[in-house]
Nucleic acid binder design. Structure first.
Lengths: 248, 248
DNA sequence: CCGCCGATTATTGTATACGAGAATATGGCA
DNA sequence: TGCCATATTCTCGTATACAATAATCGGCGG
């Protein structure tokens, strides 16, 4: 159904990563034709790929309209962070319960990568790695369902950051990750949970600049970002290449 | 993408409900042709519908093989309950924070329905209502993302019950629901959380009869249930009607 | 010069076609 | 009689076709 075709799978991964790394910004159009043409497959598969991304909340698709990279509302954004926090707590607790020394090393290796990316000002990779830290931790919980759910939420957080955050604030202060690792090592559930909560909270604060209940205030910010969105959606992952390529 | 076609939407709802109510048992085959024929649509739409159900974990689909109603492993089952508990806690906490008196009445009305269904020995409806209690509560949290995630998990729990539980144990002791309502009314977060936790725990215990790490022990039980599965998948929701209907 | 309306083009919705791979039945052989 | 090889049938994987609707552009009237 989903993993069958290598091309469809590649398209899925590519689009997913492009969205997460903010190479395709929220609102960017994703016409079935072009996606199919780009990945050398028919609209049938392009459509299935988009449907999958839609199910994960990364793509908006209203009937009869071209699919776009999702633009979560402020309210939705808050909801996502709330659920994410609940699952991160669970992930921390479960991971500590089955803690093994290798885990610490693995996570620290990851943090080193994060620092490297940050040092070389590679924002795209930075953003992705910041998210993946949380996924790796969730994986250590041993609970696949939890891992999957959290992965979905974390991706959507990248999207939220792209929409409402300031331009290039990479998601996490890396040293917060280090502190969490330290607490995990001590098997300090309460401490690790608290740190994680604060950490995600601070990401949320950075992401949701606006505090007003209405989204009007940041309409300006959003609109001014739009010019960038449109141009970026062309450069970006080279998806919309100039004009479209006809059916060849 | 998904809600476009009324037929596809109907098929989705029907299949979903049939699975949840255990009219279609785990392992039952779901050939694209038959589904399409039954709902008067082409395989294209049938396929999309199945993909959707697969994304929610209600359907298993390996490439080149006919899709079936999902058969979660014991391990997966435990994972699902674990995540569910985490989200139920969150739902309780959030709901209490924005509690309104109507909520109590609404939930009590629901419990009355549950009792009615139980009184008339309507197992199917009983099972469905038991799950919907939790969804309604999640809806009151005001967090759509949470509600959706929990709905998915609760559905999958019905599946687990069908696979591993004893034949007709309807999911919940209804009075546990009433106790939870009482705690909510008192805005007693700790108490309500504890009750919810115990409640889901008891559902889990009822669902996962086997405690052994290996699933060998209940292989017999599963196999003996299979005869029923096959015959039931024919009677059931009248999906596989005798032979298939050709392309008309 | 600006804004509304119709023609043109871009894109989606859905069915169908055809090839390929499983599943199942059939017949020969031990 | 029981088992394996092979033919047959059932399904899936994917592309393509065609109709229908939305977006876009150009001309007309104000």
């Amino acid at each position: 159904m989903s993993k069958s075709s290598p091309r469809a799978e590649i398209a899925y991964q590519a689009l997913r990563q492009a969205i997460i790394e903010q190479a395709l910004l929220p609102g960017a159009k994703l016409p079935e034709d072009q996606i199919g043409a780009h990945f050398g497959m028919s609209r049938t598969l392009a459509r299935a790929t988009l449907a999958r991304l839609q199910a994960e909340g990364l793509v908006d698709a209203r009937p009869k309209r071209t699919a776009t990279v999702a633009q979560p509302t402020l309210e939705e954004a808050r909801d996502i962070f709330e659920v994410r926090k609940a699952l991160e707590r669970e992930a921390v607790a479960l991971t500590i319960k089955r803690w093994r020394p290798e885990y610490g090393a693995a996570l620290e290796g990851h943090v080193r990568e994060e620092n490297a990316a940050k040092a070389r000002r590679d924002d795209r990779v930075s953003i992705r790695l910041a998210g993946e830290f949380h996924i790796k931790l969730a994986a250590m919980s041993g609970n696949k369902v939890l891992q999957r759910a959290l992965a979905e939420l974390v991706s959507r957080c990248s999207l939220i950051l792209a929409l409402y955050g300031r331009p290039h604030s990479s998601e996490c202060a890396v040293n917060e990750h280090s502190q969490i690792i330290a607490a995990l090592r001590k098997k300090d559930i309460a401490g690790a949970t608290r740190l994680m909560e604060e950490h995600v909270g601070s990401v949320e604060r950075r992401a949701l600049l606006a505090d007003a209940p209405s989204a009007d205030l940041d309409l300006d910010a959003v609109l001014s970002r739009y010019a960038r969105t449109i141009e970026a959606s062309n450069a970006a992952i080279s998806l919309p290449v100039g004009r479209r390529k006809r059916s060849s």
